[in-house]
Simulated assay, not measured.
Amino acid sequence: MDSVSVVDVDDCHEIIDLDSDDAEDGQGQYNFNYFGAEPGVVEVNIIDLNLPPEADFNNQQEHNESNPQLAVFNNTAAEETNQQHQNESIPQPQSHHNRRLRNYERLQILCWLLDNQVNGQLKHGTITEASKQFNITRQTISALWNKAKKQKQASQPFNVDNKYINCGKKRVECPIDRIIQLSMGQRTCIRDLSSMLGLGSTTVWRMIQRGLIKAHTNPLRPGLTEKNKIERMKWVLSLLIGDSAHTKSKFYPMYNFVVLDEKWFNQTRKSQKYYLGANEVPQYRSASSSTNIKKVMFTGVVARPRYDEEGTCVFDGKIGIFPFTYQEPAKRASKNRERGTMVTKIISSINREVTRNMLIHQIIPAIKAKWPAEEGLQPFTFNKTMQRLT
């Protein structure tokens, strides 16, 4: 009884002997033997890939009867190959081009050549016709046919697996220990890190994309002494509600707490980016010194926001931002203003008295004006940053 050699398209290393009389049905369960594996029974589909992708799968059984020497075996190879032909039809541009063929495409070309051969020889013009039909150069078709003839002469099953396994440029690997041994100042940017590792900047960038190197922003935290840590812990524990350790399970809601913080800002920047119109003239900026730019201090005041039962915000908690500035009339006339015009000036020296005046004359009146009226008048507490000033 004749036997049919079956080759796995994806991994052509497992050869099976399939009974040809049973294979004429095209489908079924068959006994098989792997080389070096346990015998078993699997579902086998004999497929002719020469049919167009839109052709019905059942019609391929009749086309297989003319050439039962080649079949495809895999647990899911039949379904995957049929799906690939439905989703990925081979393009047919006008010009030939050398492209890397997939295994199922090489198998399709070999099936077509076997159907058009007579006594092991191709007819005149068959390779040219195959080149036009599959949009592949004649050299590729000839190499595939010559390889198949050598396999047949050696009594080997047809193997269309390509040899592109470990081809191409090898990936540059860098041990993580080399990165860890560098100091933080030597790896602040990709250019510095690539220079210290002896690699290209693009290679380091690809390693970042693969997750081998990760970007990290390291904040500067306050240096607390043991005394500072104890004071912070005492302040946190003082916010617990209850009389004993067993009843102190909840924190004070802090609805009557007001948080204040100060921040210095430069009046302007040495270089500032703007977006202008097509015909707009950029503004001329000047200063007496580009290194000693004047600074102004702001105090931001916020409280805990309030929400009603429906989740609507009735008080956003934003009290305001208060600059440490003052206004006085201009003493002299200039091209920019007349004499006596009110000019805003910066308080350059911020001391205890200036901060107290800011708190009494600006911050507290703003809190009274914006505090929710339904809560009524109640004592409120400033955060610890400003408690020493009160």
Score class of each variant (00 low, 15 high):
Glu43Lys: 05
Leu18Ser: 00
Arg337Lys: 12
Lys270Gln: 03
Gln387Asp: 12
Asn146Val: 15
Lys169Val: 13
Met358Gly: 14
Asn64Glu: 02
Met1Ala: 00
Gln327Tyr: 03
Lys227Asp: 07
Glu374Asp: 12
Ile179Tyr: 09
Leu359Tyr: 02
Ser155Met: 03
Glu262Cys: 10
Ile136His: 04
Phe324Cys: 06
Gln86Val: 15
Arg337Cys: 13
Ser286Val: 11
Cys111Leu: 07
Thr225Phe: 03
Met207Cys: 15
Val42Gln: 00
Ile364Phe: 12
Glu88Asn: 15
Cys174Glu: 11
Leu212Lys: 14
Ser89Pro: 10
Lys250Asp: 14
Leu51His: 07
Ser286Ala: 09
Leu377Asn: 15
Asp192Cys: 09
Lys234His: 12
Arg388Pro: 05
Ala143Thr: 14
Val72Ala: 01
Thr81Tyr: 00
His124Asp: 07
His96Arg: 13
Thr140Glu: 04
Val236Asn: 03
Phe158Lys: 10
Gln153Ala: 13
Gln94Thr: 09
Asn266Ala: 11
Gln387Ile: 13
His124Trp: 07
Val302Thr: 06
Leu182Phe: 02
Asn279Thr: 14
Ser238Tyr: 06
Lys147Arg: 14
Tyr252Leu: 06
Lys234Ile: 13
Ser288His: 04
Arg339Ala: 15
Thr202Asp: 06
Pro93Phe: 02
Leu101His: 07
Asn256Tyr: 09
Ala37Glu: 08
Tyr104Gly: 03
Leu359Asp: 04
Glu309Met: 04
Leu239Ser: 01
Asp17Ser: 00
Pro157His: 01
Pro329Ala: 05
Gly376Asp: 05
Ser249His: 10
Gln151Trp: 03
Val258Glu: 06
Gln378Gly: 15
Asn59Glu: 07
Asn292Phe: 00
Ser66Asn: 11
Asn45Gly: 04
Trp235Ala: 13
Val172Phe: 05
Lys331His: 08
Arg102Asn: 03
Thr140Leu: 05
Glu262Thr: 13
His85Met: 09
His97Val: 11
Lys368Ser: 14
Asp48Tyr: 08
Arg171Pro: 06
Pro91Lys: 07
Leu237Cys: 04
Ala369Ile: 05
Gly340Ser: 08
Pro93Glu: 01
Asp2Val: 02
Ser244Cys: 05
Leu182His: 03
Arg232Tyr: 08
Asp25Ala: 11
Arg102Ser: 08
Lys335Trp: 08
Lys370Met: 07
Asp192Glu: 11
Thr325Ala: 08
Pro305Ile: 07
Thr76Gln: 04
Leu113Val: 00
Phe298Thr: 10
Thr217Ala: 09
Pro93Ile: 06
Glu309Pro: 04
Gln181Thr: 15
Gly242Cys: 00
Glu62Thr: 03
Gln133Val: 14
Gly320Arg: 07
Tyr104Met: 08
Glu14Arg: 11
Ser238Ile: 03
Asn98Ile: 14
Arg178Ala: 09
Asn116Thr: 01
Lys152Gln: 14
Gly277Ala: 15
Arg187Ile: 05
Ser288Thr: 03
Leu110Asn: 11
Leu212Cys: 13
Arg106Ala: 12
Val160Asp: 05
Thr128Ala: 12
Arg339Leu: 15
Val41Gly: 02
Asn75His: 01
Thr225Pro: 03
Glu353Gln: 11
